[in-house]
Design a protein around this nucleic acid. Structure first.
Lengths: 219, 219
DNA sequence: TTTTGTGAATTGCTTCACAGCA
DNA sequence: TGCTGTGAAGCAATTCACAAAA
């Protein structure tokens, strides 16, 4: 039993972890891996691994385990990272600049092809990726050009790195312009239409989580 | 019934969201707020809000709601962000530099007081925060000095922004040096002793999560 | 034998619904 | 009346345990 609909969100999150760990095994020339071994590397139970993978199909061979290269391909396909896709970034502050130069995006099949900011001093200039492999130059657009650029380049993903106070408004502009998924770094709970996917990287929450655990264990 | 032990992890995560939203209400001079209103602003049910808060004590007044300034103070206390604490950062790449200049840390009561890197070209120099309010200069230490600096400054939290391949090793050095909590930005599942708290900001997982949702809804 | 895939049991989280207080 | 705090119910996720496949 597999296919669609009632897949737990935590299972999808873990799929990314499986994929990454499989890539590590693959780099070490491992041909197959068992649910036990995969789980051990990620501090998960073997049953968890099997159940998660089973939501998406039958990938393993009893007695053998999972074939590493094959499972990598299948997971990439499921996650949609087998094809490249374009992204834009709004908000060229410290964090925005760091993310533009971040090689991880390219590795996951995402390429930042346009940057937007409302600061006239930044608009019109270019930012360049300092990635190890390719050095590209990306134009900084004014916010007003977003709909045009999104349409022209077929962009679906937006990275939001503006101050918290501006985030909700900018998110609405992004949705309006045709963006279908938002990676939000602003410390705000965005309210958007259900059709649009939002994933928030919330540093404040992470810090307070840690702080809570620290105060719990020490005097 | 309140106090300790069996508090769901999701409830602790949401505590941070409540605190932040309360601060927004406070900035708008709101005196009290109901579980319904608080939940609405965060897309959560009123029951969820009440149950979460009840894990930590009795904060509300029937018929009135929660007193905003009071609840803010209480939550800060619970999360341990009522006192300032020191942090170190390891790995002065693009992301590391951006985080050193990030004002959000200070706002949460954390201050980065030392930076470490294994690149001899960076060691010995200083990095400066470009925060709006205060401009500080922070020394870049070689990795070998970590135990000494941690002891001398009483640092408990470490921010890890090194490449994935180095992350596990550096995490072990941090724990060895006396760090009790790690905010990990490397795309790796860290294996550390259970006494040490780890919170991972995993961009790859966020991106793939979004990618999965996008491929699910569009052709 | 080893290891998968999966129903059944269990654990954990969220929602419901209402007694009790302001 | 309006709203909290909380047991009970309901739902979701994880773990168990075993039949079947290599």
């Amino acid at each position: 039993m597999a296919r669609s609909e009632n897949i737990p969100a935590p299972a999808v999150r873990r799929l990314s972890l499986y994929l990454r760990q499989l890539e590590v095994f693959h780099a070490g020339d491992r041909r197959t891996v068992s649910s036990r071994q995969l789980g051990e590397a990620l501090s998960l139970s073997d049953a968890q691994v099997r159940k998660d993978l089973a939501y998406f199909g039958q990938f393993g061979c009893p007695g053998i385990g999972y074939r590493v290269p094959e499972l990598i391909q299948r997971l990439r396909r499921i996650l949609g990272t087998d094809k490249k896709s374009s992204a834009l970034l709004v908000g060229l502050g410290n964090l925005g600049r760091a993310l533009v130069s971040y090689r991880g995006f390219t590795k996951q099949g995402f390429e930042i092809v346009a940057v937007f900011d409302n600061d006239t001093a930044k608009v019109g200039r270019n930012v360049s990726t300092t990635g190890a492999t390719v050095r590209r130059s990306i134009p900084v657009h004014p916010m007003t050009e977003m709909p045009t650029v999104v349409q022209a380049l077929g962009i679906r993903l937006g990275i939001l790195t503006v101050p918290g106070a501006d985030a909700q408004g900018v998110a609405e502009q992004m949705v309006e312009a045709g963006i279908r998924g938002i990676l939000n770094f602003a410390p705000v709970t965005l309210q958007v239409d259900g059709e649009v996917a939002v994933s928030s990287v919330d540093l404040a929450v992470h810090l307070e989580q840690l702080s809570f655990q620290l105060t719990g264990l020490t005097t």
